[in-house]
Each structure stands twice: as structure tokens, then as C-alpha cells.
Amino acid sequence: MNIFRLTGDLAHLLAIIILLLKIWKTRSCAGISGKSQILFAIVYTTRYLDLVTTYVSAYNTLMKIFFLGSSFATVYLIYVKFKATYDHNHDTFRIEFLILPAVILALLINHAFTPLEILWTFSIYLESVAILPQLFMVSKTGEAESITSHYLFALGSYRGLYILNWIYRYAMESHYDLIAIVAGIVQTVLYCDFFYLYITKVLKGKKLQLPA
């Protein structure tokens, strides 16, 4: 464990908590892409199947349980509890166009052709594009509530911090995992446009308005 990975995990935790609180407190999931949340639930389910087979540390196990529980809770809040506030007119990204290529790529490029490893690889590829429905929805509505942009900033920072973690681990432990690194870079790059808007607008107290 290193400071980059720890702050990355904490940023990830913060993002999930911000989103849950926003939906719970405002009793509304307006502006939130349910499709992205479904993709995240799939990502954690396919990645954390080893929860029952391998024990890494208490921290690792607790975080996996939290990510799994919170992702399903978020999907439940969006599609069941507050479904009246779900904006399905703007949440129209075709997630099958993200899931299928991730499946195919996981079957072609992986570290080992075993069920657990293929599922892990699929989850890494899917996570790198899982935010696209949300970013697409923000571009369609042309704006995002500031709480939603804080959520996106924390979520985008988490994998950016993981990139620093991978550099650190390569330098210090000569450990690297190209699949995670390439997917992590793609994932972080997808947020760049949003990061620019967040830093130039939201931090100045303005609303996140995309040029319509």
C-alpha cells in the first residue's frame, strides 16, 4: 500500500458517499445516469468475486464489501425508490456498446484464460468506460448540479491517483500490470474535459454549464 493508492481509494469512497448522500438527501436522482451506476455494479461484481476465495487484507475485504453494497444500493435508489425522479429521457447511452467490446477485449487480451482472470479483465476494461453514460447525460442536459460535479471530480481523481500508484509501484517494487495501467489511463483521459470545466467553473462558484 502507498499514499497514492490510499488517497485514490479514499477519493473513490468519497465519490460513492457523495452520490449516495445526494440522492438520499434530495430524494432525487435527477441528473444521475442510472446506466453508469449499473455498469459500476457490474464492474464491482465481476472484479470482486475473489472476495470469497482470496484474502488480501481486512482493508481490501472491507472496501470490496462497501463498493459492492453501495453500488447496488445506488442502483436500487435510482431504479426503485426514487424512480419517479429518474431522467430516462437524457440517460440514453447504449451500454451494450460498452459491455460487448469489453467482453471481446477481455477474451482476447488478458493475463490468463481462466474464468476469474477473464472476469477481472472484463471489469477493468468496463470500468474505464463506465462513466461515459454519465458524461453523455451531462453533455445532453448541458449542465450538472455542483454536487454531481464534485462526485465526478472525486471519481475521476481516484483512477488518476492510481496511475501515480502504478508509477510508484513500478519504481519501488518493479511491479506493473499493463492491462490495469492502459485502462486506467483511458479512464482518466475521459475525465479530462470534465476536469477542465470543473476547475475553471465549479471551483469559481459557477454552475457546470457545457457549451450547448
Binding site: 493508492r5 481490501n60 472496501m63 493475463h111 500508484n165 513500478y170 518493479s174 506493473y176
Partner: peptide, 10 residues
């Protein structure tokens, strides 16, 4: 450097 098989990251 070796590539990680068992994944210790979240």
C-alpha cells in the same frame, strides 16, 4: 519486473 497474477488492488 513481474506481472501480477493475484490482484491485490481494488
Amino acid at each position: 519486473p513481474q506481472v501480477e497474477e493475484n490482484h491485490d488492488e481494488l
